[in-house]
Nucleic acid binder design. Structure first.
Lengths: 123, 123
DNA sequence: TGTGAAACTGGCCGGGTGGTCAGGACAGGG
DNA sequence: CCCTGTCCTGACCACCCGGCCAGTTTCACA
Protein backbone atom coordinates (compact mmCIF):
# COMPACT_ATOMS: atom_id res chain seq x y z
CA UNK A 1 0.00 0.00 0.00
CA UNK A 2 2.53 2.55 1.16
CA UNK A 3 1.48 6.06 0.28
CA UNK A 4 -1.56 5.68 -1.91
CA UNK A 5 -2.02 9.25 -2.97
CA UNK A 6 -4.11 8.26 -5.99
CA UNK A 7 -6.76 5.83 -4.80
CA UNK A 8 -7.91 5.23 -8.35
CA UNK A 9 -10.44 7.58 -9.86
CA UNK A 10 -13.54 5.62 -10.80
CA UNK A 11 -15.14 6.63 -14.10
CA UNK A 12 -18.55 5.62 -15.36
CA UNK A 13 -19.48 5.49 -19.05
CA UNK A 14 -22.74 6.72 -20.55
CA UNK A 15 -22.11 6.63 -24.24
CA UNK A 16 -24.67 5.95 -26.92
CA UNK A 17 -22.25 5.17 -29.72
CA UNK A 18 -20.91 1.62 -29.13
CA UNK A 19 -17.80 2.22 -31.22
CA UNK A 20 -16.86 5.30 -29.25
CA UNK A 21 -17.58 3.48 -26.00
CA UNK A 22 -15.28 0.60 -26.93
CA UNK A 23 -12.60 2.98 -28.08
CA UNK A 24 -12.68 4.97 -24.86
CA UNK A 25 -12.85 1.87 -22.70
CA UNK A 26 -9.77 0.51 -24.45
CA UNK A 27 -7.90 3.77 -24.03
CA UNK A 28 -8.81 4.23 -20.38
CA UNK A 29 -8.70 0.60 -19.39
CA UNK A 30 -5.00 0.46 -18.58
CA UNK A 31 -4.09 3.78 -17.09
CA UNK A 32 -2.54 3.90 -13.66
CA UNK A 33 -4.69 5.72 -11.13
CA UNK A 34 -7.81 5.34 -13.19
CA UNK A 35 -10.47 2.66 -13.34
CA UNK A 36 -13.79 2.12 -15.03
CA UNK A 37 -16.81 1.62 -12.81
CA UNK A 38 -18.49 -1.74 -12.54
CA UNK A 39 -22.25 -2.17 -12.82
CA UNK A 40 -24.00 -0.09 -10.20
CA UNK A 41 -20.76 1.18 -8.77
CA UNK A 42 -20.55 4.74 -7.53
CA UNK A 43 -18.29 6.75 -9.81
CA UNK A 44 -16.40 9.95 -9.15
CA UNK A 45 -17.15 11.22 -12.62
CA UNK A 46 -19.13 10.12 -15.66
CA UNK A 47 -18.19 10.31 -19.31
CA UNK A 48 -21.28 11.16 -21.30
CA UNK A 49 -21.84 11.34 -25.04
CA UNK A 50 -25.44 11.60 -26.13
CA UNK A 51 -25.17 12.51 -29.74
CA UNK A 52 -28.39 11.40 -31.39
CA UNK A 53 -29.46 14.89 -30.51
CA UNK A 54 -32.62 14.94 -32.59
CA UNK A 55 -32.57 18.66 -32.06
CA UNK A 56 -33.23 20.76 -35.13
CA UNK A 57 -31.02 23.43 -33.63
CA UNK A 58 -32.33 25.69 -30.99
CA UNK A 59 -35.43 27.54 -32.05
CA UNK A 60 -34.76 30.98 -33.46
CA UNK A 61 -35.05 33.16 -30.38
CA UNK A 62 -33.80 36.71 -30.35
CA UNK A 63 -31.37 37.85 -27.69
CA UNK A 64 -34.06 39.79 -25.89
CA UNK A 65 -36.37 36.81 -25.88
CA UNK A 66 -33.62 34.73 -24.32
CA UNK A 67 -33.18 37.37 -21.61
CA UNK A 68 -36.88 37.32 -20.83
CA UNK A 69 -36.98 33.52 -20.93
CA UNK A 70 -34.13 33.21 -18.45
CA UNK A 71 -35.85 35.51 -15.98
CA UNK A 72 -39.14 33.68 -16.50
CA UNK A 73 -37.38 30.45 -15.52
CA UNK A 74 -36.37 32.17 -12.28
CA UNK A 75 -40.03 32.67 -11.53
CA UNK A 76 -39.89 36.40 -12.09
CA UNK A 77 -43.13 38.23 -12.86
CA UNK A 78 -43.49 40.56 -15.84
CA UNK A 79 -42.99 43.52 -13.54
CA UNK A 80 -39.79 42.07 -12.12
CA UNK A 81 -38.48 41.26 -15.60
CA UNK A 82 -39.26 44.81 -16.69
CA UNK A 83 -37.35 46.25 -13.76
CA UNK A 84 -34.41 43.89 -14.21
CA UNK A 85 -34.14 44.61 -17.94
CA UNK A 86 -34.83 48.31 -17.67
CA UNK A 87 -37.82 48.19 -20.03
CA UNK A 88 -41.57 48.61 -19.61
CA UNK A 89 -44.00 45.88 -18.59
CA UNK A 90 -45.71 46.19 -21.97
CA UNK A 91 -42.50 45.32 -23.76
CA UNK A 92 -42.00 42.33 -21.50
CA UNK A 93 -45.49 41.12 -22.29
CA UNK A 94 -44.70 41.62 -25.96
CA UNK A 95 -41.63 39.37 -25.72
CA UNK A 96 -43.47 36.84 -23.59
CA UNK A 97 -46.13 36.69 -26.28
CA UNK A 98 -43.50 35.96 -28.92
CA UNK A 99 -42.01 33.31 -26.65
CA UNK A 100 -45.36 31.58 -26.15
CA UNK A 101 -45.84 31.62 -29.90
CA UNK A 102 -42.40 30.30 -30.82
CA UNK A 103 -42.33 27.68 -28.07
CA UNK A 104 -45.89 26.59 -28.81
CA UNK A 105 -46.82 27.08 -25.16
CA UNK A 106 -50.12 28.07 -23.59
CA UNK A 107 -48.60 30.00 -20.68
CA UNK A 108 -45.33 31.08 -19.12
CA UNK A 109 -45.09 27.88 -17.04
CA UNK A 110 -45.56 25.77 -20.15
CA UNK A 111 -43.01 27.95 -21.94
CA UNK A 112 -40.17 27.36 -19.50
CA UNK A 113 -41.04 23.65 -19.39
CA UNK A 114 -40.80 23.40 -23.17
CA UNK A 115 -37.63 25.48 -23.28
CA UNK A 116 -36.00 23.29 -20.64
CA UNK A 117 -37.10 20.14 -22.43
CA UNK A 118 -35.43 21.13 -25.68
CA UNK A 119 -32.33 22.52 -24.03
CA UNK A 120 -32.92 26.16 -24.83
CA UNK A 121 -32.37 26.97 -21.17
CA UNK A 122 -30.71 25.15 -18.33
CA UNK A 123 -32.48 24.70 -15.04
CA UNK B 1 -3.65 12.60 -43.92
CA UNK B 2 -3.60 8.95 -45.03
CA UNK B 3 -6.03 6.79 -43.12
CA UNK B 4 -6.39 8.38 -39.76
CA UNK B 5 -8.45 5.80 -37.95
CA UNK B 6 -7.94 7.44 -34.57
CA UNK B 7 -8.35 11.18 -35.13
CA UNK B 8 -7.97 11.85 -31.44
CA UNK B 9 -11.03 11.65 -29.27
CA UNK B 10 -11.78 15.10 -27.90
CA UNK B 11 -12.97 15.18 -24.30
CA UNK B 12 -14.54 18.10 -22.48
CA UNK B 13 -14.47 18.52 -18.71
CA UNK B 14 -17.36 19.65 -16.54
CA UNK B 15 -16.15 19.04 -13.03
CA UNK B 16 -17.03 21.05 -9.96
CA UNK B 17 -14.21 19.84 -7.76
CA UNK B 18 -11.01 21.64 -8.89
CA UNK B 19 -8.75 19.00 -7.38
CA UNK B 20 -10.48 16.21 -9.25
CA UNK B 21 -10.43 18.27 -12.42
CA UNK B 22 -6.67 18.82 -12.16
CA UNK B 23 -6.08 15.19 -11.37
CA UNK B 24 -8.08 14.00 -14.35
CA UNK B 25 -6.56 16.59 -16.64
CA UNK B 26 -3.09 15.43 -15.62
CA UNK B 27 -3.96 11.79 -16.15
CA UNK B 28 -5.63 12.30 -19.51
CA UNK B 29 -3.32 15.00 -20.76
CA UNK B 30 -0.73 12.74 -22.31
CA UNK B 31 -2.53 9.74 -23.69
CA UNK B 32 -2.17 8.88 -27.33
CA UNK B 33 -5.42 9.11 -29.27
CA UNK B 34 -7.02 11.32 -26.69
CA UNK B 35 -7.11 15.07 -26.21
CA UNK B 36 -8.85 17.56 -23.96
CA UNK B 37 -11.12 20.11 -25.62
CA UNK B 38 -10.16 23.73 -25.77
CA UNK B 39 -12.54 26.50 -24.82
CA UNK B 40 -15.67 26.33 -26.89
CA UNK B 41 -14.44 23.37 -28.85
CA UNK B 42 -16.89 20.67 -29.86
CA UNK B 43 -16.16 17.50 -27.89
CA UNK B 44 -17.02 13.90 -28.69
CA UNK B 45 -17.74 13.18 -25.05
CA UNK B 46 -17.90 15.07 -21.76
CA UNK B 47 -16.65 14.06 -18.35
CA UNK B 48 -19.10 15.33 -15.76
CA UNK B 49 -18.92 15.30 -11.98
CA UNK B 50 -21.49 17.41 -10.22
CA UNK B 51 -21.15 16.25 -6.68
CA UNK B 52 -22.32 18.94 -4.26
CA UNK B 53 -25.83 17.71 -4.82
CA UNK B 54 -27.09 19.07 -1.54
CA UNK B 55 -30.26 17.10 -1.89
CA UNK B 56 -31.67 15.83 1.39
CA UNK B 57 -34.00 13.39 -0.34
CA UNK B 58 -37.02 14.52 -2.23
CA UNK B 59 -39.15 16.94 -0.28
CA UNK B 60 -42.14 15.42 1.46
CA UNK B 61 -44.92 15.94 -1.05
CA UNK B 62 -48.26 14.19 -0.69
CA UNK B 63 -49.59 12.10 -3.56
CA UNK B 64 -52.18 14.72 -4.40
CA UNK B 65 -49.54 17.44 -4.51
CA UNK B 66 -47.50 15.32 -6.91
CA UNK B 67 -50.56 14.96 -9.13
CA UNK B 68 -51.11 18.70 -9.18
CA UNK B 69 -47.40 19.36 -9.71
CA UNK B 70 -47.25 17.06 -12.72
CA UNK B 71 -50.18 18.81 -14.36
CA UNK B 72 -48.69 22.21 -13.54
CA UNK B 73 -45.54 21.16 -15.38
CA UNK B 74 -47.72 20.48 -18.41
CA UNK B 75 -48.78 24.09 -18.33
CA UNK B 76 -52.30 23.30 -17.18
CA UNK B 77 -54.32 26.03 -15.48
CA UNK B 78 -56.06 25.52 -12.15
CA UNK B 79 -59.32 24.97 -13.97
CA UNK B 80 -57.79 22.29 -16.21
CA UNK B 81 -56.19 20.55 -13.24
CA UNK B 82 -59.50 20.57 -11.41
CA UNK B 83 -61.26 18.99 -14.37
CA UNK B 84 -58.51 16.42 -14.91
CA UNK B 85 -58.45 15.41 -11.23
CA UNK B 86 -62.19 15.59 -10.71
CA UNK B 87 -61.93 18.10 -7.88
CA UNK B 88 -62.89 21.76 -7.49
CA UNK B 89 -60.75 24.72 -8.52
CA UNK B 90 -60.62 25.78 -4.88
CA UNK B 91 -59.00 22.51 -3.88
CA UNK B 92 -56.48 22.85 -6.68
CA UNK B 93 -55.54 26.29 -5.44
CA UNK B 94 -55.18 24.84 -1.96
CA UNK B 95 -52.70 22.22 -3.19
CA UNK B 96 -50.88 24.75 -5.35
CA UNK B 97 -50.50 26.91 -2.26
CA UNK B 98 -48.97 24.01 -0.34
CA UNK B 99 -46.66 23.34 -3.28
CA UNK B 100 -45.47 26.93 -3.39
CA UNK B 101 -44.81 26.76 0.33
CA UNK B 102 -42.95 23.44 0.33
CA UNK B 103 -40.92 24.23 -2.77
CA UNK B 104 -40.12 27.72 -1.56
CA UNK B 105 -41.42 29.17 -4.80
CA UNK B 106 -43.06 32.51 -5.51
CA UNK B 107 -45.34 31.28 -8.30
CA UNK B 108 -46.33 28.21 -10.26
CA UNK B 109 -43.61 28.77 -12.85
CA UNK B 110 -41.00 29.01 -10.14
CA UNK B 111 -42.48 25.91 -8.52
CA UNK B 112 -42.07 23.65 -11.55
CA UNK B 113 -38.57 25.07 -12.11
CA UNK B 114 -37.54 24.23 -8.55
CA UNK B 115 -39.19 20.82 -8.72
CA UNK B 116 -37.39 20.02 -11.96
CA UNK B 117 -34.09 21.26 -10.55
CA UNK B 118 -34.20 18.93 -7.57
CA UNK B 119 -35.51 15.99 -9.55
CA UNK B 120 -38.98 15.87 -8.04
CA UNK B 121 -40.41 15.84 -11.53
CA UNK B 122 -38.99 15.00 -14.91
CA UNK B 123 -39.38 17.37 -17.81
C1' DT C 1 -35.44 54.83 -51.06
C1' DG C 2 -38.36 51.53 -49.62
C1' DT C 3 -39.17 47.47 -47.03
C1' DG C 4 -38.94 44.43 -43.47
C1' DA C 5 -37.52 42.66 -38.89
C1' DA C 6 -36.48 43.63 -34.18
C1' DA C 7 -37.12 46.17 -30.18
C1' DC C 8 -39.73 49.23 -27.62
C1' DT C 9 -44.12 51.71 -25.53
C1' DG C 10 -49.06 52.75 -24.53
C1' DG C 11 -54.02 51.50 -23.22
C1' DC C 12 -57.72 48.24 -22.54
C1' DC C 13 -60.06 44.03 -20.74
C1' DG C 14 -61.52 39.22 -19.59
C1' DG C 15 -59.95 35.74 -17.13
C1' DG C 16 -56.39 33.50 -14.31
C1' DT C 17 -53.59 33.53 -10.16
C1' DG C 18 -52.17 33.76 -5.27
C1' DG C 19 -53.32 34.91 -0.51
C1' DT C 20 -56.50 34.99 3.04
C1' DC C 21 -60.49 34.02 5.70
C1' DA C 22 -63.89 30.18 6.78
C1' DG C 23 -65.42 25.31 7.29
C1' DG C 24 -66.24 19.72 6.97
C1' DA C 25 -64.82 14.62 6.47
C1' DC C 26 -61.90 10.97 7.59
C1' DA C 27 -57.83 8.26 9.15
C1' DG C 28 -54.17 7.33 12.66
C1' DG C 29 -51.75 8.09 17.22
C1' DG C 30 -51.35 10.04 21.89
C1' DC D 1 -61.39 11.20 23.42
C1' DC D 2 -58.76 14.62 21.52
C1' DC D 3 -55.39 15.95 18.46
C1' DT D 4 -52.93 15.96 14.04
C1' DG D 5 -52.56 15.51 9.24
C1' DT D 6 -54.45 15.02 4.67
C1' DC D 7 -57.89 16.03 1.57
C1' DC D 8 -61.73 18.54 0.18
C1' DT D 9 -64.90 22.91 -0.52
C1' DG D 10 -66.58 27.67 -0.27
C1' DA D 11 -66.00 32.80 -0.77
C1' DC D 12 -63.50 37.24 -1.20
C1' DC D 13 -60.09 40.37 -3.23
C1' DA D 14 -55.81 42.56 -5.23
C1' DC D 15 -53.04 41.61 -8.53
C1' DC D 16 -51.09 39.39 -12.62
C1' DC D 17 -51.42 37.43 -17.14
C1' DG D 18 -52.22 37.05 -22.00
C1' DG D 19 -54.34 38.91 -26.04
C1' DC D 20 -56.05 42.76 -28.51
C1' DC D 21 -55.66 47.43 -30.48
C1' DA D 22 -52.44 51.19 -31.58
C1' DG D 23 -47.84 53.58 -32.23
C1' DT D 24 -42.47 54.66 -32.23
C1' DT D 25 -37.35 54.05 -33.41
C1' DT D 26 -33.40 51.65 -35.29
C1' DC D 27 -30.99 49.02 -38.42
C1' DA D 28 -29.88 45.81 -42.15
C1' DC D 29 -30.85 44.66 -46.83
C1' DA D 30 -32.52 45.09 -51.58
Amino acid sequence: MSENKTPEIVLALEIDDPALADCLAALLGNIAGLRLAGPGEQAAATIVAREPRSMPEDIALTQRELDVLALMAEGASNKMIARRLGISVHTVKFHVGSLLDKLDATGRTDAVAHAARRGVIEL
